[in-house]
Design a protein around this nucleic acid. Structure first.
Lengths: 138, 138
DNA sequence: GCCGGACTTTAGACTTCCTCTAAAACAAGT
DNA sequence: ACTTGTTTTAGAGGAAGTCTAAAGTCCGGC
């Protein structure tokens, strides 16, 4: 099954991020990282955890998501007013946002090319370029 | 001064958008459109209106901003979780977002080139492409 | 000018998403 | 096992925005 290997990989990720592998962090990390790339909201992850019988508070879910983000394990994406998505794919890529259902989807790599990144204003440095292609059903 | 002309231009804009030129809408529209392009939040516009002795409620500011947006007079931009900016420049352009101070700034036209816009997922149509370049002070 | 009906505005309660607080629980070295 | 510093938690608190229903305004017809 490879379960043990996955488990210890997740554990190792937390160690490298210098985050104590507590019960809650470990469980959340497994939900996030053991099944391919995902886009989740805090609410959604919390529901999943509860459904999986992991007792964890919403505050801890928020804390963990932010700690993972700070450690570079997640990327936070804001599209809709007042809702954050967390993407387990931290590589350089962009998104489709489905306006009708609020779903976020990766744009296959290589499909958007920002041909020329503008010079940042004086005294500033570019942290990231976000491209969001908003789509709606026809 | 050209004030009368500006006034009637704003009036005309509301008429074309099929929005009754009420006292409040007219006053807000003047704040928004009579002094070059701007990026404002609802809170900010409300404060300005109060400061200019225009009695208007926050709810009306929100209503008006959304009506103007629906009519194509404004463009709504979401960068930060839980805060919307409204841009009076509705032409096709993109933004720098200053992470430290929360300021939004236009990228001069022609500076970002999205060389290739990806094909939208089946059954969907592209509504808009948003490019946000996040910068922070060095 | 004045009326009447439709459209707008308003205050304030409410919702949603998220953060804070202080106390209880836990991890990990000794 | 004990201690110490870190984490977790429930629930209160906060910010941004929406909703409601009552009061006010616009404007065409008279």
């Amino acid at each position: 099954m490879g379960c043990d290997r996955q488990y210890s990989q997740v554990l190792e990720r937390l160690r490298q991020a210098e985050l104590r592998p507590t019960r809650q962090r470990l469980a959340l990390a497994r939900l996030l990282f053991e099944n391919g790339h995902r886009h989740v909201t805090a609410e959604r992850l919390h529901e999943e955890a509860i459904a999986a019988n992991i007792r964890v508070s919403l505050a801890t879910v928020y804390n963990s998501l932010h700690q993972f983000t700070d450690a570079g394990l997640l990327r936070e994406i804001v599209v809709d007013y007042g809702r954050s998505y967390f993407d387990t794919n931290t590589s350089d890529h962009h998104h489709f946002f489905h306006e009708s259902c609020g779903r976020l989807e990766d744009i296959p790599p290589g499909e958007v090319v920002v041909a020329e990144v503008p010079a940042p204003p004086d005294g500033t440095r570019i942290r990231r370029v976000d491209v969001i292609v908003r789509v709606s059903s026809e």
